[in-house]
């Protein structure tokens, strides 16, 4: 019994101290965002890295999610003869919820994990120490460009995902299930507000922040050689994904 309490106590201390370290690193990261040196070249490189790594997977998830949404809602709505609402449903679900969340999760798996692996490798091979010795702040040099790229790139990828989801829904609904093209588009325009899109994009920016920062944090605090890098990578994906889903709930509660 005491042992159990002891273990629980220890893990709570561990979680709290990890949270503390994360918050400190986050504050340090923020403090460098608006301070020189600015590194446009590194930011562009990271934008390209996040974008290129993730575009294909975002295209595929967007298309098929939209398609499956149309398929599912069509059979439900058909019972009430409300098939024409499929377009609006797909549009709302994609822009508000599925576009940002699925993009966030997919980019976490592709780019967030790669950030953890890359920075973790730099940590265990003393490249981060080498940066410090060369009088370059590693937070400013490594973390800030990645976090900025995450915040900028996620909304862009989410727009792509939203658009392809709606297109996938259109294809399934109109071309395969025979809803009229006019109804799909009219109801979509009628029910989906621009604010739905914007709010979804704000979510996406938050998810970009989470996945890039968690990836960098896990990499930055790596210890224990190649094995440690592997661990950091897995933990980054698990932690960022969970945080994205939790943040999604609270953001939704705030926005809609």
């Amino acid at each position: 019994m005491f042992k159990l309490i002891n273990i629980i106590g220890l893990s709570i201390t561990k979680i709290l101290s990890e949270m503390g370290r994360m918050v400190l690193l986050f504050i340090e990261t923020l403090s460098w965002v608006f301070r020189p040196p600015y590194r446009p070249f590194l930011i562009v490189k990271q934008l390209e890295f996040v974008g290129v790594k993730s575009t294909l997977v975002v295209i595929i998830t967007g298309l098929f999610t939209g398609g499956v949404l149309a398929l599912q809602t069509y059979y439900g709505f058909k019972m009430f003869s409300a098939e024409s609402l499929v377009g609006a449903t797909v549009g709302l679900s994609m822009t508000r919820e599925l576009g940002p969340v699925l993009t966030g999760l997919m980019v976490t798996g592709r780019a967030g994990s790669a950030m953890a692996a890359e920075i973790g490798t730099m940590r265990v091979t003393e490249q981060i120490d080498a940066l410090s010795v060369l009088a370059v702040n590693p937070v400013e040099y490594l973390i800030v460009p990645r976090v900025i790229a995450g915040v900028i790139m996620l909304p862009i990828l989410t727009v792509l995902s939203d658009f392809l989801g709606i297109a996938g829904g259109y294809f399934v609904g109109v071309n395969l299930l025979g809803i009229s093209s006019g109804a799909y588009i009219n109801k979509l325009i009628q029910y989906v507000d621009l604010s739905d899109l914007y709010n979804g994009l704000i979510k996406a920016a938050c998810f970009g922040l989470i996945l890039a920062f968690v990836g960098c944090y896990k990499g930055y605090t790596t210890s224990g050689g190649a094995e440690g890098v592997g661990k950091a990578t897995t933990q980054a994906v698990v932690m960022a994904s969970a945080m994205i889903l939790v943040a999604d709930y609270f953001l939704t509660a705030l926005m809609f």
Partner: peptide, 12 residues
């Protein structure tokens, strides 16, 4: 300072 690391620590 300049420092040479034991494993060189080049930026790979």
């Amino acid at each position: 300072f300049g420092m040479l690391f034991q494993e060189a620590a080049l930026f790979d």
